[in-house]
Structure formats: structure tokens, C-alpha cells
């Protein structure tokens, strides 16, 4: 089986600064990590590989050259190959341009059974890139996957929706987006870290010239999104209420309060 995992390197905080002119994120000085949902996507691919050792897991990312750290980390977790799409031509891409660039690369790779993405990235929070890639490639998509079963030529996925679960059976190839409930990502192995750096060519860097990509729809110029303003919203008024009484009484009070607010 061939699995492709799309992942994004993101700043390790929601408190990143925003460029006042461009309205984009300032990434310098903020530690970078693999986007959390993408880690779950990768873990699922590696779990499938653990059960079916002939599985090949390829990770694909788009980003600046230093995003290779995220791919090395993915290799250290157990991925087989990594491709970094990196070119000035991709700079400033919105979700449309990003999914165009990634979908082009996946077409080039061609051979895959499952594409796994994280639900959404903690920096942009759009949850659009995964579904858009599926549309570009004409693939069925199953989003918000919290349980996955892989069978011969098909997958059975359980989607977590607000009011319940939705179990979907689908033939491969298929694109899935993972949520954190799907699994508990493993730690990169120390051995894997040294191996990933020793074997230099395991992260292949593709520029826009290295594969067939729709030039009109990449980078800042190919991005239909215009950011009119980025700002930090003012905090909402919050109030704290102390529930008196013993534990049992306080718990009863808490249930009443939560029901009043339709939380439970």
C-alpha cells in the first residue's frame, strides 16, 4: 500500500505576531513544529505501516527550505520518503494556491492508495487544503476522521461530527483528514533522527520547475484570497463563579449550570 501524508510546519504558538503591512504571520524567532493534526495523520499512516510492513509512507510538505526540519522529524518517526515543495514561486500562497501546488506534486507521484492530511493547521485554521487537494485530484474525501480501518481496496472511516458519528466506507484511492482523537502520535526515535540527517537525500526538494504545476494558480499572484485586516480580537467578558458546598453538592450545582447553558 502507498500512503501520502501532507504536513505543514507551523509556529509553535497561537500568539504569533502579524506583519502589520502584509497581514501575514511573522515566523522568525518562533519555534516551529509539525502541525498537531498532521502528526495524527502521519501516525495513522505509520500505524497502518506497522500492521502492513510493505506499506510505503511518503510525506509531502510545502514551505521554505528550513521546513525540511519538519520532514526530517517525520522521517525520524518512521516515514519512508519526504518531498519538500520549496520555491519563491510558492511564496504567499493562500489555501487555493497551496492545494494547487501540492495536488500537482501528488499527480506527479501518481501512485497512491490513501492521502492523509490533518484537519487544519493551528496557524491558519482554515481546514481547506485537504478537501481542496481531493477536489483537484478528483478523489473522494472523508474529513474529521477519528477512527480508521483499512481493508483490501477500501477504507472504513468514522467521522466525528458535532452531534454524533458518521461511518463511511469508501474505495481507495481516497483522501482523509485526521483529527487528534484518531490516535496518539509516537515520538520521533533518536535513531531515526540520526538516520534522517545522515541520509541526506531522503528529503527531496522540488521547485516549481521540477514538476507539472498550474503556474497561474500558485503563489501570491495565484491566490484569490485577499487579507483585508489581521488583528487580535479583544477578550470576551468572563465571570468566575465559585460553587459552594461539599464535592457532591458542588458537582450537582455544576451539572445544573452546564445544562442551563446547553453545554450538556
Amino acid at each position: 500500500m502507498k500512503i501520502i501524508v501532507c504536513l505543514k510546519q507551523v509556529p509553535d504558538t497561537n500568539e504569533v505576531k502579524i506583519d502589520p503591512v502584509k497581514g501575514t504571520l511573522i515566523r522568525e524567532g518562533v519555534p516551529s513544529i509539525i502541525n498537531p493534526d498532521d502528526r495524527n495523520a502521519l501516525e495513522e499512516a505509520l500505524r497502518i505501516k506497522d500492521e502492513n510492513p510493505d506499506t510505503i509512507v511518503t510525506v509531502v510538505s510545502m514551505g521554505p527550505p528550513q521546513a525540511d526540519v519538519a520532514l526530517k522529524e517525520a522521517l525520524a518517526m518512521g516515514a519512508d520518503d519526504a518531498i519538500l515543495l520549496s520555491d519563491r514561486a510558492f511564496a504567499g500562497s493562500d489555501t487555493w494556491a497551496t492545494s494547487t501546488a501540492i495536488a500537482g506534486a501528488l499527480k506527479q507521484i501518481g501512485d497512491y492508495d490513501i492521502i492523509l492530511c490533518g484537519r487544519q493547521a493551528i496557524d491558519g485554521d482554515t481546514a481547506q487544503v485537504g478537501p481542496q487537494i481531493a477536489e483537484h485530484l478528483g478523489l473522494p474525501q472523508i474529513t474529521y476522521v477519528e477512527k480508521l480501518e483499512v481493508k483490501e481496496g477500501k477504507v472504513i472511516a468514522r467521522r466525528a461530527l458535532e452531534d454524533g458519528y458518521y461511518v463511511v466506507e469508501c474505495e481507495t484511492p481516497v483522501l482523509l483528514t485526521a483529527i487528534k482523537e484518531l490516535n496518539e502520535p509516537r515520538y520521533p526515535s533518536i535513531k531515526g533522527i540520526y538516520k534522517a540527517y545522515r541520509e541526506e537525500d531522503r528529503v527531496k526538494v522540488w521547485s516549481a520547475n521540477d514538476y507539472d504545476v498550474d503556474r497561474e494558480n500558485i503563489g501570491l499572484d495565484g491566490s484569490p484570497t485577499e487579507v483585508s485586516k489581521s488583528f487580535t480580537p479583544a477578550g470576551r467578558d468572563s465571570a468566575c463563579e465559585i460553587l459552594e458546598g461539599n464535592g457532591k453538592e458542588a458537582a450537582r450545582q455544576l451539572v445544573v449550570r452546564l445544562k442551563e447553558r446547553k453545554i450538556i
Binding site: 526540519v69 526530517k72 522529524e73 525520524a76 515520538y187 520521533p188 533518536i190 533522527i193 540520526y194 540527517y197
Partner: peptide, 11 residues
């Protein structure tokens, strides 16, 4: 630190 050592620290 080397890149490997840096990643070991993070992990």
C-alpha cells in the same frame, strides 16, 4: 549544537 542534537533536545 548540531541539527541532530537540536532535534534530540526538542524530542
Amino acid at each position: 549544537l548540531t541539527k541532530e542534537q537540536e532535534m534530540v533536545r526538542n524530542v
